[in-house]
Amino acid sequence: MKQKVSPISTAEYIKRYAKRCITGPISLLKGLSVTVRYFFSPHKIVTEQYPENKKTLKMHSRYRGCLELIEDENGENLCTACGICEKACPNASINILSTKNIAGKKVLGKYLYHLGSCTQCGLCVEACPFGAIRMNQEFELSNESVDSFEMTLNKKEGRG
């Protein structure tokens, strides 16, 4: 059922018209004040002059570049080879190859990361229960050979 719009009286129409005559210019002035403020504040510019400022360029902390294992100064990582990131990855860019250490415990052997198929969605980072991986701010990832996209992220065997 369609609701009928009741016609407004002439007095009401004139009232609304007069109100809009006042609020309209005010809202336009508000918009103008925003643009003029941006125009006179050059420090708000977000454009980067990329090849020229290569040395000083800093990516934003939330930028998702290449995947990496969080390592301490000795190169030890927090990965337990649970494989949750492997399951979270939508296009199978992660392979966890686990081994057994001397004590017979399952530890991380090789953390294989295929950059070529990775879409930088960040689901693996969200899935990791130990906070062992992160996306770094590296963005110059192009390379001449396909082999360089097949990476082994861990330098050392996991501690378990």
Binding site: T35, Y38, F39, P42, K44, I45, V46, T47, Q49
Partner: peptide, 13 residues
Amino acid sequence: KICAHIQCRLGPM
């Protein structure tokens, strides 16, 4: 230049 600076860009550089 004016449109770039209003939109937080640099324009032709």
